[in-house]
Amino acid sequence: MAKAEDIIAALGGADNIIEIEPCATRLRTEVKDAGAVNEAGLKAAGAFGVMRQGTVVQVVVGPEADTIATDIEDILD
């Protein structure tokens, strides 16, 4: 869960996250304010890479993406 919490924080906190969806290798997220996303923080949380296109942020975490997404959703709910 610590990893999920770190990722939420680096995405600008729970209130900044509109949607989060796991893929085989990455978390596809949509945020309200792209400026609040901390790329270094995401990498410190274990992300291999971060791809940003406007408010869509893809966090590359490897095949554990579905497990991490479930943890994040549990925290957000």
Binding site: T25, G49, P63
Partner: peptide, 9 residues
């Protein structure tokens, strides 16, 4: 796809 092309995983 950059994730694969750049061998991120």
């Amino acid at each position: 796809d950059p994730v694969f092309a750049q061998a991120m995983v």
